[in-house]
């Protein structure tokens, strides 16, 4: 077993008067599905945003493949997110005016891939998440579950190392949530991508390999303690 891919140590983050994180440790190994659990408002999303380099922590360190994420410039972090990370949020992440296919192809196109090539690959991914027939439709015309599958395809199309999923089933019913989780974890596992899965639902967390709990902005990771 290799060492961790992504490690955050002693992370602190304050928004105004709210201490969202006060000392969180977390590590993600390559290819594992890590559930981040905890009650609402405990700082799960903030932790995810820190790990993904979307926000910088006030203190603490984040290392991705041995590189210091905190010390990177904003542009470098953007580029890293584009090339190495994928994202699935609760809802509403698809660009409404683009078709589903174009939405999935978007990360590739932003990476400079030709339109034809990008859309062909996007089509494969749509098939893979079982919504191949939705390519020409706009996100406004598809159901919540279908939209989340498109989002999963978009997160994975660029062969990311880590997929960050923040309550990906939060707006879905059990059955749809179940399917999306299965598609997400299966696809990630077969692509050997790690998944950081923020959720407060045990049934969703049951798709993980391991969980950490965030409580009042603190989290301990046994892997790091040992």
């Amino acid at each position: 077993m290799t060492g961790p891919l992504l490690v955050g140590r002693d992370l602190h983050k304050t928004f105004g008067a709210t201490q969202a994180l006060r000392g969180a440790d977390v590590s993600v190994r390559a290819g594992e599905v890590l559930a981040v659990m905890g009650p609402s408002g405990s700082g799960k999303s903030t932790l995810l945003h820190c790990l993904a380099g979307i926000v910088t922590p006030d203190s603490g360190s984040i290392e991705y493949q041995g590189r210091d994420l905190v010390a990177m410039s904003d542009a470098e972090r953007s580029a890293l997110r584009r090339t190495d990370f994928g994202f699935v949020f609760q809802f509403g992440q698809l660009v409404p005016e683009l078709t589903c296919l174009e939405n999935v192809a978007l990360p590739l196109r932003l990476g400079g891939v030709k339109r034809k090539v990008a859309e062909a690959k996007a089509r494969q991914w749509l098939e893979r998440v079982e919504v191949g027939e939705l390519g020409a439709r706009r996100p406004g015309d598809v159901s919540g579950g279908q939209g989340q599958r498109v989002a999963v395809a978009r997160a994975l199309v660029g062969d990311p190392q880590v997929v960050f999923a923040d309550e990906p089933t939060g707006a879905l019913d059990s059955l749809n949530g179940e399917t999306v989780m299965q598609l997400l974890t299966e696809a990630a596992r077969s692509a050997n991508a790690a998944v950081v899965l923020v959720t407060h639902e045990a049934r969703v967390a049951a798709h993980s390999d391991r969980e950490i709990v965030v409580r009042d902005g603190t989290a301990t990771d046994r892997e790091l303690v040992s």
Binding site: A202, R203, A206, H207, E211, V213
Partner: peptide, 20 residues
């Protein structure tokens, strides 16, 4: 008490993972 709960959650999740 938190630790009691965390320990229990771990055990539960382990079984749930198996079931899943």
């Amino acid at each position: 008490a938190t630790e009691v709960l965390d320990t229990q959650r771990s055990a539960h999740l382990k079984v749930m993972r198996e079931l899943t």
